[in-house]
Design a protein around this nucleic acid. Sequence first.
DNA 1: TCCTCATTTCAATGGTTGTTGAATTGTAGG
DNA 2: CCTACAATTCAACAACCATTGAAATGAGGA
Lengths: 119, 119
Amino acid sequence: MEERQARTAFAALSQETRLRIVRLLVRAGPDGMAAGAIAEAVAVSPSNVSFHLKDLEHAGMIVPRREARSIIYSADFNGLRDLIAFLMKDCCAGHPEICAPALAEAQCRPFTTKKKARA
Amino acid sequence: MEERQARTAFAALSQETRLRIVRLLVRAGPDGMAAGAIAEAVAVSPSNVSFHLKDLEHAGMIVPRREARSIIYSADFNGLRDLIAFLMKDCCAGHPEICAPALAEAQCRPFTTKKKARA
DNA sequence: TCCTCATTTCAATGGTTGTTGAATTGTAGG
DNA sequence: CCTACAATTCAACAACCATTGAAATGAGGA
């Protein structure tokens, strides 16, 4: 991931309404939610939510699809993963031992084969 | 990590000069760099770098210490780790299989001690 | 103590970002 | 085709953020 794109993503996530939308959509999973439902859930006006959705889409954090009269947005897990990877490269490069604890905390250990991960 | 603190950190990293400073200091490691040296490295005025350093410190991304006449800043690896953990909780919660690939990409596998990374 | 260097603070300015409500586009059902 | 509904676009305004240069602080060395 390029630095410029990462900055755009950070900027997107730095805004209260936008971060709430992303967290909402991550919880919603691949099904996503319609713009109107998102507006209601985060309690902002339709035009305002549209403004922020466009910004999040541009930042690669969410992805839209049309369905009947609604536009459904869902979290862009690839984009989120890329952003994490960017951050880890900066944080951990040369210092893997420092960031390792973060992985356990996030319940995201890859390649664990000894014990079964429990959600 | 609280949502508000995460937003502050994202905002800090969304600015070009500040992101460059963080990446510089991560590369510099625990020794850190003096404010003046940072200013020179990222090519901004002393007063401007001071402005951004204060912001990064407030966001928990860097940490200062006095040393003779200089003030030495270094990356706050705990803060960075916490931010990654926050992001992974949002991204991976309920979907660990999605984010696992990011870890390998970031050369951040925990608990591997076979080789030492070279900068 | 006095002087110097490193950094920070301050006030002013220009630029960017978020919010609002009204008008518009686009989709589907009667 | 006409109406209703979902979402976006637009223009205007307020609020916030970054940059600049000058002045102030604070630590050390002579």
